[in-house]
């Protein structure tokens, strides 16, 4: 059977086109971000056959089901430890976690800080839509204060997480935040994140008109993009603590952290299996560990804006 290729989308080779249409609502930003991710992959020539996508549960978690590469749709909150396991077993493969804010920062919150601390060589893309979309619009750890959700009908009284800030101070090697409106800069950041050896993280603020916007005076999909346009301030290498997002106020997007590459978790795990490491004295092993340790004091200067770049 011959197939006419004229109508192919430039990303069709990266998508399981037989699974389309996807589950995402109109006005949702996930497709925009997935597009940016796949273009970034294509731009840097990353081989989809050597790339694994792992996702958790939720709207964003469905992304793994649409990409034409080895992909795993795991349990709620656990894509990161699953990815840590697969990357440790196969350090030669590129491993990306693509999941939502609830999945990675509420139920899976413990795992992301530990994967960042270990400098596991994985890339994590988090879509932050301020809400639990798949289950119908419940309170997320990112819902802004006062936000109306189906489980905060009187307004959210909790403070939301500053995702990029949290990951930056946990020991990541690369951290950025954009919105689904900043498509080109997002794409560039994802390229950097994919190329970075070590733990890289990109947070993307993204509209959910169906479950969030509808209840929070941004009913039309364009309303939230307008909100992003009006309030996003591009700033790089800020103190991550300045990355808080407050209702109706300006918030910062940009590159939070771009640290120098240091040995990854997997580098160290595999070094331990070598004879040169095992068949030596503890003094020499200690020396090797110190020589290859991460320079978190430098990291701390960078993230507090005092370090040289």
């Amino acid at each position: 059977m011959s197939v006419v290729q004229a109508n192919m989308h430039p990303l069709d080779n990266y998508l399981r086109t037989e699974r389309l249409p996807h589950v995402w609502c109109s006005g949702c930003g996930i497709g925009t971000v997935l597009g940016a991710y796949l273009r970034a992959m294509k731009n840097i020539g990353m081989d989809p056959e050597k790339t694994i996508m792992v996702s958790g549960i939720g709207c964003t978690g469905r992304a793994a089901g649409y990409v034409k590469m080895d992909s795993f749709h795991t349990t709620h909150g656990r894509p990161i430890p699953f990815a840590v396991g697969i990357k440790a077993a196969r350090p030669d493969l590129n491993v990306t976690v693509f999941s939502g804010d609830g999945d990675l920062f509420a139920i899976g919150g413990n795992h992301i800080i530990h994967a960042a601390r270990r400098n596991a060589d994985i890339t994590v893309i988090t879509i932050n839509n301020f809400i639990y979309g798949m289950t119908g619009g419940q309170l997320a750890p990112t819902t802004p204060e006062t936000g109306i959700t189906t489980t905060s009908p009187y307004g959210n009284v909790e403070s939301p997480f500053n995702l990029a800030g949290l990951v930056a101070v946990s020991g990541a090697s690369y951290v950025a935040r954009w919105t689904s409106l900043h498509v080109r800069r997002l794409e560039k950041s994802i390229e950097k994140a994919l190329k970075k050896r070590g733990f890289s993280f990109v947070e993307v603020l993204s509209p959910c008109p169906t479950a969030y916007g509808r209840r929070n005076r941004m009913r039309d999909p364009v309303d939230m993009l307008k909100y992003f346009q009006e309030h996003a301030v591009v700033k790089h290498h800020i103190n991550p603590l300045e990355g808080v997002i407050e209702p109706d106020k300006d918030f910062i997007v940009g590159e939070f952290l771009d640290a120098e590459e240091e040995p990854t978790f997997e580098d160290k795990l595999w070094e331990m299996t070598k004879k040169e490491f095992l068949y030596t004295s503890q003094a020499e092993r200690t020396a090797w560990i110190l020589e290859h340790r991460r320079h978190l004091e430098t990291l701390s200067k960078i993230i507090s804006g005092r370090g040289e770049r």
């Binding site: 792992v54 795991t74 349990t75 894509p79 430890p81 396991g85 077993a89």
Partner: peptide, 10 residues
Amino acid sequence: AALLGASWGG
């Protein structure tokens, strides 16, 4: 979770 990931990793 890591166990399952590593198992798929062979």
